[in-house]
Amino acid sequence: MLNPILRREVQTSLRTWKIFGAISAYVGVIVFFTIVFIKTAIDGSMYSGFDPQSVIYLYALLSGLQLGFILITAPALTAGSISGERERQTLDLLVITRMSPFSIIFGKLLSSIGLILLMIVAAMPVYAVLFYFGGVSIFYLFGMTMFMLVTACMVGSMGLLFSTIYKRTMISMVIVCLIIGILVVGTLVGYLLYVNIYLHGYKQMNNYISLPAIYGFFFLNPGAGFFSVIDAQLGTNLFDGITMTNWYGKGLKLPVDMWIVNMVSDILLSALFLKLASLKINARN
């Protein structure tokens, strides 16, 4: 049987123009950046027309936009899901049903992820441009979508947890956004400070930097995971470049790709967040 909360949320959200407006706006932004990119690539090309080599950068750009969108949308959808029920005075009626606290929380997460998936699917025709020029496999797109959905689950379940802790939606949303900011920017800044202050600059870092430091700073950074996926798919060195681990081309070689560490951490953390959130809404706790 379909999760009752998922069914209700899909039923009610698709009845308003809000969701269609949001999808249209999102696809519009993606289309806008694609057109600007192709125009710039054509104008800047040494050859007449579009350089097919640019396709991989267009793929990275579109995927990056999508990740940014997910990092904003997933917590926005989930951070108010339980506090919203509380504010609307419907939470008590929900927790006294036969649904377990976990299925209530999971239904909420599924409905948020479902909306995100809908938006990703809506943007697929734009990705078709990539296949027209070639150079990007459909499996790359599938892999990237999986990475994004796992990231959305982690960020979304974090939003859900804070939504159960704080009674006001606004507070939980602000806190989740702050945490995501720390995960994306804060860990990068922390790492760069560590390199500059603790290791006294990049010149010596290849001698001193340790794997635990790299994994420790970036295991939850969605940006690090994203660049690692791009590196794995397209053979670039974006993650190494950002972390300076390959400064002289002879730096550290990560034994396990960062995107794998990232996805495993996200899955484990999502499970923890969901468990804690379901304990929190259990009325008898």
């Binding site: 209700r8 609307r88 005075q89 419907t90 009626l93």
Partner: peptide, 15 residues
């Protein structure tokens, strides 16, 4: 065994 109706409750929009 128990059915409960609270003193204050809300309803869902668009349902």
């Amino acid at each position: 065994k128990i059915g409960y109706m609270p003193d204050f409750f809300g309803v869902y929009d668009n349902l």
